[in-house]
Amino acid sequence: MEEIPTPSKEQPHHPLDDLIRTDRIPHIWCPGCGIGTVFSACLAALKASGINLQKTVMVSGIGCSGRAAGYVKLDSFHTTHGRAIPFATGLKLANPELNIVVFSGDGDLFAIGGNHFIHAARRNMDITVICVNNLNYGMTGGQVAATTPYLAKSTTTPAGNPETPFNLPLMAYACGATYVARWTMLHIRDLTDSITEALCKKGFSFIEALSPCPVNYGRRNKQKPLDMLKLYQEKAIIKNDADPATLDIDFEKGIILGKFIDLDRPTFIENYDKIYRPSRLQENVPELNS
């Protein structure tokens, strides 16, 4: 047998270590959980985007994905359940220079926090919302969520989910989001590119990242961690600009991924400045002329 070289005593540095609170690693996410991968894609995108990271803030709600704020080495806020978006709204309005990333889960953003999502998208609040969609409430042990597929099992739908799940990109689009994309945690490069694009884009951006929850969702639905990834691989249909109304998640027919919406309309702050703070715009005039 080949001799395995002894690793050097000094621990090598992961390329993202400068954006991670390494003193808090390993994180709490279970083996096989995809949140870490989506989080890693988000950090890679933050680097790739070239935005000023000192002026970049991550805001999370509650739940497994909500813990992301605790691992990023940027200003980060771990708020109450469902309230990451309104907290982020206040931050952005107080200091429009800040780049704000809301990183949270499907339960947090779309059940308890659904109302805030709808209105932030409608206002075109200039923030980037990344939703890790693991199809259930992981932190509390695998309860049904607003994204759980019809008939899927959870601890609170032991005989199958009687409800219809949300089509998140459709909802984001209908509410007024100016950038909408969906990828899985297996489509990491596309996901990273989308997050990078969203970070650089003005307005309300939304990225849904499908991610396995092997311990709580997979276990009850006869899916081993790799089964879920294989499903992503086999069932993915990449279709940019697909009609948002066609984006229901259906593992039988296939899951449509891609960038669906990329449009421009004035942000809340732009409109607010125009109507209420014209002096701010006047201050900008010399800059524009110079």
Binding site: P15, I20, I25, P26, W29, G36, S40, I188, T192
Partner: peptide
Amino acid sequence: HYCEIICPEFAIF
């Protein structure tokens, strides 16, 4: 870098 970017744990690169 695929191992690096798929790793949820920042454990390989």
